[in-house]
């Protein structure tokens, strides 16, 4: 992307009938292919989580076994939610670091983001084991199936995000993440923020709304 202007000039100069050539960027929209692709993917993910959240809403009152009210530990989950939301802040700091060319800070903030994400996942694993111990197995009731599937799906998304963040740190350590590829960090940041935003919905719908 560093040389978008250069491309433009060569395209314009190259085209014999350039009267109507009006490429102001290296893509028609001005958004890079990768970033546009990520936006589209996230749009699609909205429907995925939308479907799962709808299913949960339909099934949130179990006929047997523990009810949501009995089992949820709101202060605990609020804390882990706070941790996850803070990881969006560190993600923003990471993007801003690479845009400044500060690779040391980039790695610190990416690592912090991954760590906060991992903390959230540990919290989720702890929560799941605690629920199972209290008698809420995956097959116990319609509520339990819907709950574990929805939050588990979100957990898998966070885990994939952590893997991508760690990969970025490793790439950066090996010098393969120069400034002109800062958009890679930004795009993975998009994914990460999306996963956070989805959690806000899930947390509100599953834990807070009675």
């Amino acid at each position: 992307m560093a040389s978008a202007v250069q491309t433009h000039e060569s395209v314009a100069a190259a085209d014999a009938h350039a009267a109507h050539a009006h490429i102001d960027h290296d893509t028609n929209t001005g958004i890079s292919n990768t970033k546009l692709g990520m936006w589209l993917f996230l749009a699609s993910e909205c429907l995925l989580f939308g479907g799962l959240i709808t299913t949960y809403l339909l099934y949130k009152h179990p006929l047997e076994g523990p009810t949501p009210k009995q089992i949820f530990d709101i202060p605990f989950t609020s804390t882990s939610s706070f941790v996850l939301l803070m990881s969006s802040l560190t993600m923003v700091l990471a993007v801003s670091a690479i845009e400044r060319g500060d690779h040391q800070r980039l790695r610190i903030w990416l690592g912090a983001t991954a760590l906060l994400g991992a903390t959230f996942i540990s919290g989720q694993i702890y929560e799941f084991t605690a629920f199972v111990r209290e008698g809420l197995g995956f097959t116990t009731s319609r509520f339990s199936s819907a709950f574990y599937t929805l939050t588990g799906f979100h957990g898998v998304h966070v885990t994939v995000g952590i893997i991508m963040l760690v990969s970025l740190v490793l790439l950066s350590l090996r010098g393969k993440l120069p400034e002109h590829r800062s958009e890679t960090v930004e795009i993975i940041g998009l994914y990460w923020h999306f996963v956070d935003v989805v959690w806000i919905f899930i947390f509100a719908v599953v834990y807070l709304i009675p």
Partner: peptide
């Protein structure tokens, strides 16, 4: 494929 082709249509059209 959907992501791929949408990006192609939106981003990669010839001049004009």
């Amino acid at each position: 494929g959907a992501v791929n082709l949408i990006v192609t249509v939106l981003n990669m059209r010839a001049p004009g």
